[in-house]
Structure formats: C-alpha cells, structure tokens
C-alpha cells in the first residue's frame, strides 16, 4: 500500500526515497536521524511577514533524548511542527531518516507521520468517548496492518506504558497522567523513528510529570529517539541534550552533563493523592 501511495507521484526524486526508506532499504550510513540545514519559516500575517525560523541547523542521531527549550515566540513550536511533518519549511533542507522531507506532498507527509513519527501533545489529544485501546489503534487504521496485528500491537504499546489493565477505559475514566500514557502508547504503536513530545507535562502536576518523564527515559533507554519541547527547566533536566531557541534561531546546543534520573527523583516526591487518580 505504501509503495502505491508514493509511486503514483513518480518523477519526484524524493518519492523514490520515501519508497526505499519505507521498504526498509535505508542507507543511513552516518547514523544521523535528523539533518536540518539553514531552515527558514516565514508566515504572512495579513501584510506583515513573520519570520518564525531564521536559519536553524541541527543534527540529531539515533537514540538521543533532546529537550528543546525557549520562551514563547522563540520559534520552538514552529520548529516542532516542521520536525513532525505537519508543516513545511519556507527554505532550507530537512532530511528525516535520509528522506528529503521538505519537498513532499501532503499525502506523502501523512505517510511519513504515520510511519516515522509519534506525537505526544500537551493536551493529550485523545478521542473522547473512545477506549484507550481504540485510541492507541488509531495510527494503525491508516496503515496496512491486519486486525489481529493491530490489536496485538496496541496491547503491547499499552503494556509499555503500564496501562494493560485499563485498555477498555474511556479517557474521562483516566487520570491526566494515565491519559498522557495512552497518548504515549499511541505514539509508540507504529514503531516510529522519533517521538515528538510538545509540552507533554504542561497539563500535569509535578509528580505525574516526573512519572511521564520516567516513561520517556525508559523508552529512550530502549533506543527510541525522543525530542521534547518544554519551557520548564525541571523537565528538561531529564533529557540528555538541551537546545535553546531564541528569536527563531538556536541560541545554545549542549549536552546535559547532569541528567537526572526520573526513577530516583520520583522517590523524593511524596505520593499524597495517588489514589485520586483513579
């Protein structure tokens, strides 16, 4: 199915790359998952040009845990949208897993999102009145997976986030932390190359936030690349690399030598109202 999706746009150089990558012929020699070069993004707000990104260059290797930080308006959200193939850059190169994503069509971008990217949002973004299981299944609806495989993969993903007991619960029967874990399971279900988390702890209390970060750290230990947007230094402290945005440019990009272990931190926070989560 995926070969069909992209090959109908034959003649486009990039679609052959979509093909080869998705059919498992990745020739990713240098181990770089993300290669971004001089990325620009300009909006037109009425007559005014807004320069959200002014020449961002960054490389991310497989297995990294990157925190992207910056004040609001620094361009980090725009950057995440482009990273997540929801938006296209005005100028510049973006290679994801060796695919030149910058020139793909809407449908091809949808395919990349389906196969390569898992999203975790601040507001969880689960479908209401839909069980945890069905929410997690959602990405598999848009790929060619048998019914049996879809169920197995969904249960497996829910196990990874420790929610196998609640697969038939509805979002309104779950606590904020549990909802976010369902969202993480949904992000994982298609075995993506990267998990993009946009302020995943923004709607959670501090203990639950650390719990979510614990999950991210465990997933990262299993080799999953995670890119996290946050403006909270406490949360960024769990990541291995800090990238700070300011005015559409990268202000600093350094390894976090003092990475905190969420499993350790969680022991120092008293679990006063853990039962209220139920």
């Amino acid at each position: 199915m995926e070969t069909n999706n992209s090959s109908h746009l034959s003649g486009d150089v990039s679609s052959s790359k979509v093909n080869s990558v998705l059919s498992g012929e990745t020739k990713n020699v240098n181990g770089k998952l993300i290669e971004i070069e001089k990325l620009f993004r300009t909006y037109l707000l009425g007559e005014v040009e807004v320069h959200a990104l002014r020449g961002v260059s960054i490389e991310v290797s497989k297995g990294e845990f990157v925190a992207i930080m910056g004040a609001s308006g620094s361009g980090k959200s725009t950057f995440m949208n482009i990273l997540g193939c929801l938006d296209k850059p005005t100028k510049g190169n973006y290679k994801l897993d060796n695919i030149d994503v910058g020139n793909l069509s809407r449908d091809e971008l949808a395919l990349i999102r389906n196969k390569k990217i898992g999203f975790v949002f601040q507001g969880f973004n689960l479908l209401s009145r839909t069980t945890a299981m069905e929410n997690v299944e959602l990405p598999l609806f848009y790929s060619t997976v048998s019914n049996k495989e879809r169920k197995e993969k969904s249960i497996e993903a829910l196990k990874k986030v420790g929610l196998e007991e609640r697969i038939y619960h509805y979002p309104n029967q779950l606590s904020g932390g549990q909802q976010q874990r369902v969202a993480i399971a949904r992000a994982l279900v298609n075995d993506p190359s990267i998990v993009l988390a946009d302020e995943p702890t923004g709607n959670l209390d501090s203990r639950t936030s650390v719990e979510v970060m614990e999950i991210f750290q465990k997933l990262n230990e299993q080799g999953i690349t995670i890119i996290l947007v946050t403006h909270e230094p406490d949360i960024a402290a769990f990541a291995k690399r800090h990238v700070v945005f300011k005015d559409g440019r990268i202000k600093s990009d350094k390894i976090n030598s003092n990475t905190k272990n969420a499993s350790e931190v969680i022991k120092t926070i008293p679990s006063i109202d853990e039962e209220d989560e139920e």
Binding site: D107, A110, R113, N114, N125, L126, Y142, R186
Partner: peptide
C-alpha cells in the same frame, strides 16, 4: 476539528 487534526497527525491523508 480536533479529532480530524489528531487523525491527520497520526497519518490520515486528506482523502482518508
């Protein structure tokens, strides 16, 4: 609209 956004973010194409 949000649901549609979610579906698109996990890989639904316009025609889906």
């Amino acid at each position: 609209t949000r649901e549609i956004g979610i579906r698109m973010s996990v890989g639904a194409r316009g025609r889906d």
